[in-house]
Design a protein around this nucleic acid. Structure first.
Length: 1046
RNA sequence: AGGCGCGUAGCUCAGUGGGAGAGCGCUUCCUUGACACGGAAGAGGUCAGGGGUUCGAUACCCCUCGUGCCUACCA
């Protein structure tokens, strides 16, 4: 027997190992099945699992498991990324702890160290992924620095170079002074920072006067080689061509005219620092200005900065401002918001820096990539991201790919120092080669004359090849033939440009085909307040902690349920707990079903072979069929959250709340055949549901599925390789669904009355239902269900039912339900209730009426809409009328139902004792009868308890009176209704309970009876309070006051 | 500066040109033989505000406010 509640820890590791041992995740490059392939966005090898990964892989796993079960040769190719700068930084830090720095130990030793690090910690992320239950083909795991992938990187570099798409040159690049490397534009994060705009005087060399320039970076004036104004600027018309003196350095620089200058900004005059600003660089190129570098790679002032040489860039700013101020050249300082670039790895402020780097020409590559998306060869989902994609692609700039780091792919370039002939010189001695060259291929200089390029490639250069390099490219492998193009790429939008766009470009260039047909872009996960999670903010939720606390399945289901397209996810732990409850529900439903499979097994192989399916059976099978199509459809469109909620709704509210409850009737009944049909249906629906749920919550479904004693089970097989359900696994049956709707209406109607009158769930009700024709027949045929689910032992159904007195009503389409309430009835409450319902319906009715009477509507609205509205209106009006009739009737009754106080007396008292909850005991006195005014009253249910002791508390014995079980009390009392009206009591009151609770097998029901007035006792609704109350006031046997209706 | 998105129940969010849904939370009742990680019944919304298109707008368009993000060379 399985445990009472679900404990994920017991099963996850076991079944993951089972899957691995069976090799279920392995794809077959020779398979004849259609293939389906996803390459994982490779996490950083030194990273650890965060929520973003968790979401990403959960969605991929859902797709892969779904496709695998749906008969595809599914390959999910896993791997990790070497993450050049990030990994290098990590190892740098380690070295620092040892008091070392990578330059001290040298390049080779450092790289060796990183490899060791990778060996030691590189598996961590993989282990963490496995805990997510991912069904990757681990036999194909790749690492971007693997030999094969490195070969692909070299090959791509060389081919791009040969095609003239890679070049080397001096340009302004983004330089991180801390990481000491160039970065691509994408690797710079822009943040608006409060800064200042300084207005500085540049005196004219000839004559008096000066020009005022505005700058946010005064320290760069040391590298100024001109001042620029707009040629159209009237203010400076006569100044162009003059010479000004560069403050502090007293260098003469020209005033030039360039259209770039924005006349409206600052003073309209710009200092030009060609070596430290990309715009100034362009201006300088146009005007042949000199380039003066004033900073070092560490972000300190260099010799070019003259007297400030050696100072930190910010210290220098302070000093220069002071000097300018002293010289009277600083004329104004204004607050100014500056968009500052920061290194995406270390957040250091980026320095635009003139430097010799390698670049990829992007425009030619981008063109094809744009049309691939435009013409639909690649589908971006949600499609809103297409705009961003096009926008970026159409304005793409060349990609700086060289990095001054040691960990990664070294640029396969050598330089010939000798350049002995023209060709060699023409090529600047650049040798691009797959192998280390023995000699210069141009001038024949020997190996000793050749120096290898020190720089490494941007990590994203290798990631861009991931969809084909992992499949074996440049070799023409079976995998490549079979799985390229891959089917879908699942990732967050944060790497759309970094990675997705570049993969598309390189796939098209080198494979001649798109790398994937769909790109599914999911949301980013934020914390409960919508903030991005980051270590520095300390708001990071560790997925492994969630897994430990709630289990992988609950975590996965939460992520899935949240994964609505196009919105960020505000993640909170509470939600995970909620979905764990869902798993517990599944667990217990399974437990119930497995417990009820009776021996010998009567399980049938095919549910369609079972005759004598009941309405409930047919209904749930029909619902199942529908759910199967909906889930498949949702998955096909990447509507993960829809799929999750469809399943949640079905399992919990249809299967558990309705079907399982109904099945109990047949399960515990005498009809063997019906019972067999029910068991088969239960098992069938469970089995199919587990298959349906498997991609979402693989562990619990596998475990439970293994526990089902299926007749044709092959012991060794796992659920994860079973067929994914198709609609034929259910049996669609419209008739059953509409009949069930009638039954549900009836049950809901009765339950509503029970709930609103606060009647005990255990109280058996007596109901009458007025219904006609088909509805009547359906109700009659399925009376047992209504009786069971609504707890109504006595139900009468007919066309000419008349509403009994003291009954509450529920009006449903095609039926009116009356529930006898007898003494429990409260006219006022019922009238209020019904009037409220009328108000509600009336609002809708008025609205529709308005529409229907509008001539334009009748003329222009589509026929179907008009019909629909008419039908709705008719229903509303009928309902309102029926309810109104009921209200009228109630008002009449209300007059007769004056409340009276009646005295009564118990007779034939026998005594017995039961224990109270608190450890005391209650003496029960069995009563043969009960009289009021000498008239003998029958008692239907429960025991009337009279507290007769003078001073009782709960730990003392309480003498009670218990009424005979088979007696009946015709004018029973509505305890709750009374209590709601504030019963008033005084000290002479006697507490009376009519309660089944006191009987061993009983349920509870409570009545406080009171005489005369003094203070409300509304709160005395639970039986312990009642006992206490009775005890406090004491009581006298026989002195009973009853509220009596009529 | 431009672009994109969001604003729906107390919270987190679905959703659609024909008068609004879920989960959690809340209120009341209940230990009935899978489950209190449960069952039953309720309460709760001018669908941010204003204008327009339409027979009809929460949905489509425009504007405003609030909010988040992306891109960008404004010194």
């Amino acid at each position: 027997m399985i445990e009472k509640s679900y404990n994920p820890k017991d099963i996850e590791e076991k079944w993951y190992n089972f899957w691995l041992e069976k090799g279920y995740f392995r794809a077959d490059s020779k398979s004849g099945k259609p293939s389906y392939c996803i390459v994982i966005p490779p996490p950083n090898v030194t990273g650890s699992l965060h929520l973003g990964h968790a979401l990403d892989v959960t969605l991929q796993d859902i797709l892969i498991r779904w496709k695998r079960m749906s008969g595809f040769n599914a390959l999910w190719l896993p791997g990790t990324d070497h993450a050049g700068i990030a990994t290098q930084n990590v190892v740098d830090k380690e070295l620092k702890k040892e008091g070392l720095d990578r330059h001290q130990i040298g390049r080779e030793a450092f790289v060796q160290k990183v490899w060791e690090w990778k060996k030691q910690y590189g598996d961590r992320i993989i282990h963490q992924l496995k805990r997510m239950g991912v069904s990757c083909d681990w036999s194909r795991e790749r690492f971007t620095l693997d030999e094969g992938l490195s070969r692909a990187v070299k090959e791509v570099f060389i081919r791009l170079y040969e095609d003239g798409l890679i070049y080397r040159g001096d340009y302004i690049i983004n330089w991180c002074p801390r990481c000491q490397t160039a970065l691509s534009d994408l690797e710079v994060e822009h943040d608006d920072v409060k800064g200042k705009l300084y207005h500085i005087k540049y005196p004219f060399v000839a004559g008096k006067g000066h020009l005022v320039v505005a700058t946010t970076r005064p320290e760069t004036l040391l590298g100024d080689t001109a001042v620029a104004v707009n040629p159209a600027d009237e203010r400076y018309k006569d100044i162009v061509g003059k010479t000004v003196t560069l403050p502090v350095l007293n260098k003469e620089i020209p005033v030039i005219a360039d259209e770039f200058v924005d006349m409206s900004f600052g003073t309209g005059a710009v200092k030009v620092t060609p070596a430290h600003d990309p715009n100034d660089f362009d201006i300088a190129k146009r005007h042949n200005l000199p380039f003066v570098k004033i900073m070092t790679e560490e972000g300190k002032m260099s010799e070019g900065a003259g007297p400030y040489s050696g100072q930190d860039r910010y210290k220098c700013r302070e000093n220069i401002l002071k000097d300018l101020s002293d010289l009277g050249l600083l004329v104004d300082v204004k607050e100014h918001l500056v968009g500052l670039g920061h290194c995406y790895r270390c957040k250091t402020v980026i320095e635009p820096y003139l430097s010799k780097q390698w670049f990829v020409k992007m425009k030619p590559l981008a063109e094809e990539a744009i049309s691939a998306v435009r013409d639909g060869r690649i589908n971006i989902i949600p499609s809103g991201w297409k705009n961003s994609y096009f926008d970026w692609m159409e304005n793409i700039k060349d990609w700086c790919i060289s990095r001054q780091i040691w960990w990664g792919h070294r640029i396969p370039v050598w330089y010939c120092r000798e350049m002995q002939n023209e060709e060699c010189a023409m090529r600047s001695g650049i040798i691009v080669s797959r192998e280390t060259p023995e000699a210069c291929p141009y001038c024949g200089a020997g190996a000793s004359a050749l120096i290898q390029e020190e720089d490494m490639l941007d990590t994203w250069f290798s990631s861009a090849l991931w969809p084909f390099s992992t499949l074996g490219w440049p070799d023409e492998t079976d995998d490549l033939r079979k799985f390229y193009p891959t089917d879908v790429l699942v990732t967050g939008f944060d790497i759309l440009f970094f990675w997705v766009a570049r993969m598309i470009m390189s796939g098209l260039k080198f494979m001649g085909d798109v790398p994937f047909r769909d790109v599914y872009i999911h949301a980013l996960i934020r914390d409960a307040y919508g903030q991005k999670m980051s270590k520095s903010k300390g708001n990071v939720i560790d997925p492994l902690e969630l897994i430990d606390n709630y289990g992988t399945d609950a975590f996965r289901f939460t992520l899935t349920a949240f994964a609505a397209q196009g919105r960020d996810i505000k993640f909170s732990v509470d939600r995970v707990e909620g979905y764990r409850h869902f798993l517990n529900k599944i667990w217990n439903a399974s437990r119930f079903i497995l417990m009820n499979i009776k021996q010998p097994l009567l399980l049938c192989k095919d549910i369609k072979e079972i005759d004598s399916l009941s309405l409930a059976d047919r209904w749930i099978l029909s619902r199942l069929s529908d759910v199967i199509s909906e889930v498949n459809a949702a998955l096909a469109e990447y509507r993960f959250n829809d799929a999750a909620s469809i399943l949640y709704q079905f399992i919990w509210h249809e299967f558990c709340d309705w079907y399982i409850e109904m099945s109990k009737l047949t399960l515990y009944g005498d009809d063997k055949q019906a019972c067999n049909a029910a068991i088969n249906t239960l098992v069938h629906v469970l089995e199919v549901s587990l298959r349906l749920l498997h991609p979402f919550i693989p562990f619990i479904t596998e475990k439970l599925w293994q526990d089902i004693p299926l007749p044709d089970r092959r012991e060794v097989e796992g659920l994860c390789v079973q067929k994914y359900p198709v609609p034929q696994d259910g049996i669609f049956n419209k008739d059953a669904e509409s009949k069930m709707a009638v039954i549900m209406d009836a049950v809901n109607g009765i339950r509503s009355i029970r709930g609103e009158f606060n009647l005990l769930p255990s109280l058996e009700l007596k109901a009458m239902i007025r219904a006609f024709d088909g509805t009547k027949d359906v109700l009659r045929e399925n009376l047992v269900y209504i009786s069971k689910l609504a707890k109504a032992s006595d139900i009468e159904i007919g066309e000419d039912i008349r509403r009994p007195e003291d009954s509450a009503v529920a009006v449903k389409p095609a039926m009116e339900i009356f529930v006898h309430l007898k003494g429990l009835f409260d006219v006022e409450l019922e009238i209020k209730r019904l009037q409220k319902e009328i108000t509600k319906i009336n609002e809708s009715a008025v609205f529709i009426k308005k529409k229907l009477t509008n001539r334009e509507f009748a003329a222009k609205a589509p026929e179907t809409v008009i019909e629909e509205n008419k039908a709705n209106y008719k229903d509303f009006i009928e309902k309102i009328q029926k309810i109104q009739e009921n209200i009228e009737k109630l008002k009449k009754w209300g007059k007769q139902n004056d409340v009276q106080m009646v005295e009564g007396e118990f007779v034939n008292v026998k005594q017995s004792t039961v224990r109270t909850v608190e450890g005391g005991h209650i003496e029960l006195q069995q009563v043969g009868a009960f009289t009021i005014d000498g008239e003998k009253i029958d008692v239907t249910q429960g025991a009337a308890v009279v507290l007769k002791s003078e001073e009782l508390n709960l730990n003392q014995s309480i003498s009670c009176l218990s009424l005979a079980e088979n007696a009946s009390l015709n004018f029973s009392i509505a305890p709750v209704a009374m209590a709601k009206e504030d019963i008033n009591v005084n000290k002479s009151a006697v507490g009376v309970m009519i309660s089944k609770k006191i009987k061993t097998e009983g349920t509870s029901s409570l009545i406080m009876i009171a005489k005369e007035v003094e203070g409300p006792v509304t709160t005395l609704l639970d039986w312990r309070s009642a006992l206490a109350f009775g005890a406090a006031f004491g009581g006298v046997l026989g002195l009973i006051k009853l509220l009596r209706s009529r």
